[in-house]
Simulated assay, not measured.
Amino acid sequence: MNRITSLFNIQYPIIQGGMIWNSGYKLASAVSNAGGLGLIGAGSMYPDVLREHIQKCKKATDKPFGVNVPMLYPNIEKIMQIIVEEGVKIVFTSAGNPKTWTPFLKEKGITVVHVVSSSKFALKAQDAGVDAVVAEGFEAGGHNGREETTTLTLIPMVKENITIPLIAAGGIATGRGMLAAMILGADGVQMGSRFAASVESSAHENFKQTIIDTQEGNTLVTLKELAPVRLIKNKFFNDLQELYAKCPTTEELKELLGRARAKRGMFEGDLVEGELEIGQIAGLIHDIKPVKEIIDSVMEEFELAKKEAVML
C-alpha cells in the first residue's frame, strides 16, 4: 500500500485520465476492475448523460471510481449536484480554481483531487483543502499548462512544495515511465493517452488507429490564447497554423475552432477537420489492447524495472 492506493482503496497506483470523448463508463469501470482508478470524463457530457454513465458504472464495477470535472464547462452546478445525488465518492477537478468547489464536495464526504501544471497551483490546491494533486507535465495530451514545464522537472518541484499525495501525469504510458515518476517523488501516476488507445475507450476507431500511427514529433501544443491543447497534426491543425501566420485575434481563433470540433475528431472519427487531442507518448503506443492487458503489462514492467534499478 502507498498513499494513493490507500487514499482511493485501489490495488495499483494507476489512475486513468478523465479524457473528453474517450472516458465513458466502459473505460472507467474496466480500469477500476483491473485494479486502477477509473474516471468518467464529465467534460464531454450533458448532465443527464453523465448521470446515465455514473449509474452504468456502478452496475459495471463494485470497485472505487470517480468523475473528472473540468470547471470551465457550463452546467457545473448541475453536474456537481448529480455527482452528490449519485453517491460518487471521488472527484478530480481541473481547469479552474479549486477553492470554488472543494469545500462543497468535502462537506459531502467526497475525496477531491485537483489537476495542476505548476508548483504555484499545487500549493493553491493544497491550501484549498484537496486530498491530492495531479501534476501534469507539458507532454500531456488535451488541455495543457501554459508554463511548458515537463513532467521530469515538474514532479520534483511540486514534491518539494506540498505535503499531500502527488500523482504524476504527462508522458507516462509504461511501467518504466511509472517507476521514473515515482522515483522523482510521485505517489502514483495518471495515464490518459495509453487508455485512449484501449478496447474500452469510447473514442472512434479512426482516432484509436491514429494514436498508434502517431510518431515522435507528430503533436504540438496550440491555441494558447484560448486554452492550450496538444493536437495531432492534421488539416485542422494546418488551418490553425495558416491563421496564426496572419496574427489572428482571439475571436478569429474561436471562429475557426467553432463548436464540437473535439467531438468531431475523437468521437465521430473525422481525421481531417476534427480536433485530435493526444499526448507526446503516443509515439510509444503501438497497439489497441483491453484495459486489463494494459494495466497488467504496465505493472509487470514496473516490477521488473524496479528490480533492475536495485541492481544498478
Rank of each mutant, 00 (worst) to 15 (best):
R3H: 09
T5D: 00
S6A: 15
Q11Y: 06
Q16A: 13
G17L: 04
M19E: 01
W21A: 00
W21N: 11
G24N: 08
Y25H: 15
L27V: 06
A28T: 08
S29M: 05
A30Q: 06
S32I: 04
A34S: 15
G38D: 04
G38T: 03
L39N: 12
I40A: 10
S44Y: 01
Y46V: 10
V49W: 12
Q55W: 07
A60R: 06
D62E: 13
D62R: 11
F65E: 03
G66A: 07
V67F: 02
P70C: 08
E77V: 10
Q81G: 13
I82S: 00
I82G: 01
V84Y: 08
E86V: 02
V88W: 01
K89V: 02
I90F: 04
I90R: 01
V91C: 01
T93I: 09
A95Y: 05
G96S: 01
N97S: 14
N97C: 12
N97H: 10
N97D: 15
P98S: 01
K99T: 10
K99F: 11
T100Q: 15
W101D: 12
P103C: 01
P103K: 11
F104E: 13
L105K: 05
L105H: 02
G109E: 06
G109H: 04
G109N: 00
V113L: 08
V116I: 14
S118R: 03
K120V: 13
F121P: 08
A122R: 06
D127G: 11
V130Y: 07
D131T: 10
V134C: 02
G141R: 04
G142V: 04
H143S: 12
H143M: 10
N144H: 08
G145A: 06
T150C: 15
P156T: 02
T163H: 15
I164R: 00
I164L: 06
G171T: 03
A173L: 00
R176H: 07
R176C: 10
R176L: 09
R176A: 12
G177V: 00
G177R: 00
M178W: 07
A180S: 15
A181Y: 09
A181P: 06
I183F: 12
I183T: 14
L184R: 03
L184F: 10
G185W: 03
V189L: 07
S193P: 06
E200Y: 03
E205G: 09
N206F: 02
K208I: 05
Q209E: 15
Q209V: 09
I211A: 03
T214K: 02
T222D: 13
K233P: 03
K235M: 11
K235R: 15
F236I: 03
Q241Y: 10
L243E: 08
Y244Q: 13
A245Q: 14
T250M: 14
E251M: 10
E255R: 13
L256C: 09
L256D: 10
L257K: 11
A260P: 06
R264H: 11
R264Y: 11
M266D: 02
F267P: 08
E268H: 05
G274W: 00
L276E: 00
E277R: 12
I281E: 06
I281G: 07
H286Y: 10
I288C: 07
K292A: 15
I294Y: 05
V298H: 05
E300N: 12
A305W: 03
A309G: 09
